[in-house]
Simulated assay, not measured.
Amino acid sequence: MPLILRDATPADLPAILAIYNHAVAETTAIWNETLVDLDNRRAWFDLRQTRGFPILVADIDGTIAGYASYGDWRPFDGFRASVEHSVYVEKDHYGQGLGKSLMTALIERAKTGGIHVMVAAIEAGNTGSIALHTSLGFRLVGTHHEVGQKFGRWLDLTMMELKLG
């Protein structure tokens, strides 16, 4: 199975939509409870493109198996060199190292794009994501307790950061 990491195109949006909506419906990786439609993902894609932010996909034999992107951490000029990222893997491809491959490529893109800090906001119970980020050099900066809700319970948010330069 040859893996290709590449920039997303509009043709990838249906697969990105399916991955996103699975995370919404089945996980606490996204604290949204409402499924989105293709127009929502098109608007997200267009905004990322307009701002010059990358959207990378993991393409395995023509199938999108995951994606990663970053965008504004906070929408104020003083934060322009800091970004918050997201990485999602299609459920049938969990545990194959795609998250790490996508994150490694995204980190390189951030370095070449003049980003100084990448911020990760991770549901505190997502030990796999926390371990992935730790393995990539992210450091724990704190946990916000009971700042969100999903599936009828309070969620804690672990904050991690990676200084790039």
Rank of each mutant, 00 (worst) to 15 (best):
A68C: 07
M159V: 01
P10F: 12
Q96Y: 09
L155T: 00
A120E: 04
V141K: 14
Q96V: 09
R41D: 06
K100L: 00
V36Q: 13
G97D: 13
G113P: 14
Y70P: 01
G99A: 09
M160K: 11
T9I: 01
G52V: 08
M1S: 12
R153D: 03
K163N: 08
T127G: 12
D46R: 11
A18L: 00
G99M: 02
Y70G: 02
Y94R: 12
A29E: 04
S129C: 14
I4Q: 03
K91A: 10
S69L: 00
T104D: 01
D7V: 01
P2A: 13
E123G: 08
F45L: 04
D59G: 02
V83I: 12
V87H: 06
H144Q: 15
W154K: 00
L35I: 10
T127I: 09
R153Y: 01
A110T: 13
K111Q: 15
L3T: 07
H93A: 13
N40F: 15
S69W: 01
G128N: 14
W73E: 11
A8E: 04
L3A: 02
E33D: 15
I64T: 11
T27V: 07
Q96F: 07
Q96A: 14
L17T: 04
L35P: 14
A121I: 14
L17D: 08
P75W: 11
A81D: 11
T127D: 12
V57Q: 04
L132E: 04
A15D: 06
D46H: 09
D59K: 06
A110Q: 12
T134D: 15
G148H: 08
N32S: 13
T158W: 01
R6V: 02
D77C: 05
L140P: 09
P75I: 07
Y94P: 00
L5K: 02
T127Y: 05
I64A: 06
Q149H: 08
G95L: 08
V24G: 05
G125L: 09
T134F: 04
R80K: 12
L162N: 09
R51M: 13
N21V: 05
S101T: 06
I60C: 13
M159Y: 03
V83E: 07
E161N: 04
T112K: 10
A110N: 12
Y94V: 02
V57H: 07
G148T: 10
D61S: 09
S135K: 15
F76P: 00
G142P: 07
L155G: 00
T28N: 15
D72T: 05
G52S: 10
F53E: 03
I64E: 02
D92E: 03
F151C: 09
Y94C: 06
Q149L: 00
A58K: 02
I115W: 11
M1E: 08
F53D: 03
D46M: 07
N126V: 04
I130D: 10
T27D: 03
V36F: 03
T143L: 13
M118N: 09
V89H: 10
